[in-house]
Write a protein that binds this DNA or RNA. Structure first.
Length: 497
RNA sequence: GCCUCAAUAGCUCAGUUGGUUAGAGCGGCGGACUGUUAAUCCGUAGGUCCAAGGUUCGAGUCCUUGUUGAGGCGCCA
């Protein structure tokens, strides 16, 4: 029986005859292993149609294009007329070394099929630079552009790297619920989930909505965090992570916030705040490295694009270093690590503080604002900064109270351009301290009884953090607006597609 | 939610102290072109100047309100 199982495993892993695309060769494969002077079939979308003779073809498998050489006397005029920007075509022909500059290989077309023309009179995109705002309105087409196809290849790369990183290190991927009955997760406004008729909901005797009649028999919402449930997993499986959609009904109108975003939340048992920071720093560097090694051409394209756009900006508004250089800089240098108290000291000794340039006050006990975080990251340390040990009055109830009784073992990782990339903490494992904190912060014990029981029975020191996935995609791609790194952004007044 | 800015051709923008017929580049259409790289060259069509109201002899331009978008802030990841 064991032998049979091993055979199945061997077959599965070796995959000698895995299913291949038999109708076409993908351009990425062709450029990696060019089969010169052989006939190949490629299919994709026309990125440029030059001189009635050359097609730059892209099939999404790579940032690059493959040049197709078309002899206009060999094909009917009707077919040639349909070749245009973003028309989809299939070509069979001989792969040869290119006679022109700008590309190594090209296909001399023998057969040419236009699957779908894109009438330029009506097609909304044009072969030119278009604004991100306009392309956002054309969400059904924007992934065909160089910029967005690179962004979404990198988004995939990061999602894959997240799972690979944790899997290789013995973490279990835990799926926490999207619909939650918790009323007290304390991470922002929630979207209500209900099947009740909004016009005539059932009412209780005192006139409030009777959620007992609702689908789940109670008031439910979309999750704002999987952390509390991830703690259940960590205290059983040791190391877990969540990676799923998260919803915040905040009226946030910024380039760094979405109403629906993806969050990664590792949670580890027998770990403290220092282990937590080490994990977060290592994890972030791994993600960046993964993209640098495996998606260099997409990063290179985005880098060039940003540099070209910045030529028109005054020097002060340009990036201090180009995209790829900055990504390398981040992985090659240790993050700065300071306490909240040290951060306040640095800020109070800073030039902008002394000159009264800060809009918001810098005093112990008040949360840092964006201008303070930017000073620390972009001016003082010039690299990512981890700030730890915040005043307990400004942080969530579940964060572990330090021995000084004034601060909690919380940590935020601040990145240039993005601000807060990670927020995490060591969790309060002491039942009495946790209950006191909940009382102080007006969180009802009975609603989170299950959470308290994790401390009462077999609790242990544990820690974790939340990473905003789109913010990471934003940092790595250099995109200015978070709405352009998720395929279908949801934000206040925005739920198209 | 708050502050600032913007809205003119299909797209990206210019439009002077308020003055006659609204400008460009790209794209489209027609033509030329057998090695192009956002190809190039010639020709050509294309506008309810975001909406409503107001000031004025006269408004793309000034004022009010609204709508939409961007940037910043707050909330946070």
């Amino acid at each position: 029986m064991l032998k049979g199982w091993q055979d199945i495993r061997a077959t599965y892993y070796l995959c000698p005859n895995f299913v291949q695309m038999i109708t076409r060769t993908e351009i990425a494969d062709l450029l990696k292993k060019p089969t010169l002077n052989e006939d190949v079939t490629v299919m994709g979308w026309v990125r440029a149609w030059r001189s009635n003779r050359f097609i730059a073809l892209n099939d999404g498998s790579t940032a690059g294009t493959l040049q197709i050489v078309v002899d206009d006397s060999a094909f009917p005029e009707e077919t040639l007329k349909q070749i245009g920007f973003h028309a989809s075509v299939g070509v069979t022909g001989t792969l040869v070394e290119s006679q022109g500059k700008g590309q190594d290989y090209e296909i001399i077309a023998k057969e040419l099929t236009v699957f779908g023309a894109a009438d330029p009179n009506e097609y909304p995109l044009q072969p030119k630079r278009q604004t991100m705002e306009y392309l956002r309105e054309q969400g059904q087409f924007r992934m065909r552009t160089n910029t967005f196809s690179s962004v979404f290849r990198l988004r995939h790369a990061l999602a894959f790297a997240v799972n690979q990183y944790f899997h290789e290190r013995g973490y279990y991927y835990l799926h926490t619920p999207i619909v939650t009955g918790n009323d007290a997760e304390g991470a922002g406004e929630m979207f209500r989930v209900t099947t009740l008729d909004p016009a005539t909901p059932p009412l209780t005797e005192d006139g409030t909505v009777d959620f007992n009649e609702d689908f789940f028999g109670k008031a439910t919402n979309l999750t704002v965090s999987g952390q509390l449930q991830a703690e259940i997993g960590a205290l059983a499986l040791g190391k877990v992570y969540t990676f799923g959609p998260t919803f915040r009904a905040e009226n946030s109108n910024t380039s760094r916030h979405l109403a629906e975003f993806w969050m990664i939340e590792p949670e580890i048992a027998f770990a403290d705040i220092d282990n937590n920071m080490d994990l977060a720093e290592d994890f972030l560097k791994y993600l960046i490295n993964f993209c640098l090694y495996n998606y260099a051409d997409d990063l290179e394209f985005l880098d060039q694009r940003i540099q070209q756009a910045e030529k028109q900006l005054p020097a002060a508004q340009r990036r201090p270093m180009p995209l790829v250089e900055m990504l390398r800089f981040v992985v090659e240098n240790d993050f700065a690590r300071i306490t909240y108290t040290e951060a306040v000291d640095i800020l109070r000794r800073s030039k902008p503080y002394k000159k009264g340039k800060f809009e918001f006050p810098v005093e112990w006990g008040v949360d840092l604002s964006a201008e303070h975080e930017r000073y620390l990251v972009e001016k003082h340390f010039k690299k990512p900064v981890i700030v730890r040990d915040y005043p307990k009055t400004i942080k969530a109830f579940y964060m572990r109270v330090n021995d000084d009784d004034n601060t909690v073992a919380a940590m935020d990782i601040l990145f240039p351009y993005i601000g807060e990339m990670v927020g995490g903490s060591q969790r309060e494992e002491r039942l009495d301290v946790l209950m006191q904190r909940m009382t102080d912060m007006d969180v009802h014990h009975d609603e989170l009884d299950w959470y308290l029981q994790l401390r009462k029975f077999g609790g242990c020191p544990h820690a974790g953090f939340g990473l905003g996935f789109e913010r990471m995609v934003q940092f790595i791609t250099g995109m200015g607006n978070i709405r352009d790194v998720i395929p279908f952004p949801r934000a206040p007044r925005l739920a198209d597609f």
